[in-house]
């Protein structure tokens, strides 16, 4: 996992709420057995005018000029600003894989769906929750200002806006630690292997029926 310390990047606005993970990465691309290569199909049904399928060369497909990420001013965006309940629906981790592969490092919204929220942090994406009013104000500024960038400081938990103001944000300390150090949490959990074994021994004594083979 990539480390995340501080990130200065171009902001793209996706001005809709309840963006579900089917919309982030449609099902046909979930047939892949890899973790990479989903970027060209991020928001596939919004980005292209035709139906996409796995393995195709996306560079020749007709693009939807209306879609925000196809507009030249948002090329190279690495911060996505969007509305409430982003990432709802399916638990597919292909959604954060696609966002990360496309080049996003940060997503800002008033709220996120629970499973997506977890999945994103495990892939080095920083998800920032701001109030509806703060998102509304940023949305207006981004849309009005070509080249609008934000400088995000994870250590200090602040966003530096171009007008010199700052916005503070909350982040869970465990997730912050993992992001700052690019840590794989399996390794961290396995440091507690003795505690898990100890729990398991007692648990097994109390619930023996949970540790048995099925009757054929």
């Amino acid at each position: 996992m990539n480390k995340f310390v501080r990130h200065d990047g171009l902001v793209a606005p996706l001005n809709r709420s309840n963006v579900d993970t089917d919309l982030i990465i449609p099902k046909q691309f979930l047939k892949s057995i890899k973790r990479t290569g989903f970027g060209p199909n991020l928001f596939d049904e919004l980005r292209y005018l035709d139906e996409g399928f796995p393995g195709q060369d996306a560079s020749n497909r007709p693009k939807n000029p209306e879609f925000v990420l196809n507009q030249p001013r948002y090329e190279d965006a690495s911060i996505l600003l969007t509305r409430s309940n982003f990432g709802c629906g399916s638990s597919r981790e292909h959604a954060p894989w696609a966002l990360e592969d496309f080049g996003f490092r940060v997503i800002i919204a008033p709220s996120f769906a629970d499973i997506f929220f977890n999945n994103a942090f495990k892939n080095g994406l920083l998800l920032i929750t701001l109030s509806e009013a703060q998102v509304e104000s940023l949305m207006k500024q981004v849309e009005a200002t070509p080249g609008y960038r934000l400088d995000i400081d994870l250590a200090e938990q602040v966003i530096h806006c171009p007008d010199g103001t700052t916005l503070a944000f909350e982040v869970d300390s465990f997730r912050k630690y993992c992001l700052e150090n690019g840590l794989d949490d399996i390794g961290l959990t396995l440091q507690q292997a003795d505690a898990i074994k100890q729990f398991e021994t007692t648990y097994r004594q109390n619930n023996p029926w949970l540790f048995r083979a099925p009757v054929a």
């Binding site: 638990s91 597919r92 981790e93 954060p96 999945n119 399996i186």
Partner: peptide
């Protein structure tokens, strides 16, 4: 859960 968590549960 997501795939990273599937791996986490398998391993731990």
């Amino acid at each position: 859960i997501g795939t990273s968590e599937v791996e986490h549960v398998l391993a731990t």
